[in-house]
Simulated scan of single mutants.
Amino acid sequence: MRIGIYPGSFDPVTNGHLDIIERAALLFDRVIVAVSKNVNKSPLFTVSERVETLQQVLIPYYNVVVDSFEGLTAVYARQQGAQAIIRGLRAISDFEAEFMMALSNKKIVSSVETMFLMTRAEYSFISSSAVKEVASFGGCVQSMVPPLVEQKLKEKFAIKLKGEG
């Protein structure tokens, strides 16, 4: 069985992420979308909120499962029996950091490859950070995220604004 791991913070999941997941699901027998617990970031959504949202959004994909992990991606991939770590690239500027990370992962666990998938052009400008910024000011993110995520962003920022008011 060919297993691919698609790690990320997914805070929140965007249409660009979904594009990569959809195409990875065609290449692998099983894709594990792995939400990382990064203590160095201050996420908008908790890990459990991100996992739950991804599980709902990814229902149509029979061979995609959602999990969360802490620590090194390469070690997690080995523990899951994965052959590849899937990484999405939006622009050439993403490549240098991703390339260095791929080399590090290969050094840590030599049996796991890194596979780069370019996002479709229409999603190349979307990042979770941009989505959060637009949503925080009440802007429209409808074309950037699935409807469930748009709703969750509205709820999250309504709560934040109430707390500040």
Rank of each mutant, 00 (worst) to 15 (best):
I126W: 02
P12D: 06
S42N: 15
I85R: 06
S104T: 15
K160H: 07
E155H: 01
R50K: 13
L44M: 13
S128C: 05
A121Y: 10
R78I: 00
F69S: 12
R120L: 11
I85F: 00
V51W: 05
A84D: 04
A24M: 08
E150V: 05
V131D: 12
N105T: 01
E113A: 13
V65S: 14
E122H: 08
N15L: 15
S36P: 01
F137Y: 13
V47Q: 01
D67S: 12
E22L: 12
I85G: 00
G4R: 11
F137C: 11
G71R: 05
R120K: 15
Q55Y: 02
V66E: 00
Q142F: 12
E52A: 15
S143I: 08
T53M: 15
S48V: 08
S93K: 12
M101S: 12
D19Q: 07
Q142H: 13
I92K: 01
A77E: 01
S93D: 13
Y76W: 00
P147W: 04
E52W: 06
K41R: 14
G4A: 09
C140G: 00
V145K: 00
G8M: 09
C140V: 10
K37H: 11
D67F: 02
V39K: 09
R50D: 04
E155T: 12
Q151W: 14
E22T: 14
L27N: 13
D19W: 13
T114C: 08
E49G: 11
G81S: 01
I108E: 05
V66L: 03
V145A: 04
K156N: 05
N105L: 09
R90D: 00
I108Y: 09
L153F: 09
E98W: 05
S128A: 14
L117W: 04
F116N: 14
P43V: 08
P12R: 00
F116T: 11
E98K: 14
K107T: 15
G138N: 07
Y123A: 05
G16Q: 08
E70L: 08
S104H: 10
F10P: 07
F45Q: 01
P43N: 12
P146T: 10
A102N: 10
V112P: 00
S93I: 04
A77G: 02
T119N: 14
A121W: 08
D94A: 11
F45N: 05
A34P: 05
P60C: 13
Y62I: 04
E164W: 03
K132W: 10
A25F: 11
E98Q: 11
N105R: 02
R23S: 04
A25C: 03
K152N: 09
R2V: 09
T14V: 10
L103A: 08
S48E: 15
S129N: 08
E113Q: 14
G139Y: 01
L89P: 11
V13S: 07
D29E: 15
E22P: 12
K162Q: 05
V131P: 00
I159F: 15
V13P: 02
Y62T: 14
K132M: 08
L54M: 14
N15W: 03
H17K: 02
G81Q: 04
K156Y: 11
N38Y: 07
V109K: 04
Q79P: 02
H17F: 03
S111K: 03
S9N: 13
A84R: 06
K156E: 09
S124W: 02
R2N: 13
T46Y: 01
S36W: 01
V141D: 03
M100E: 13
F10S: 02
A24V: 04
S124C: 11
E122M: 11
S42I: 13
N15G: 12
I3D: 00
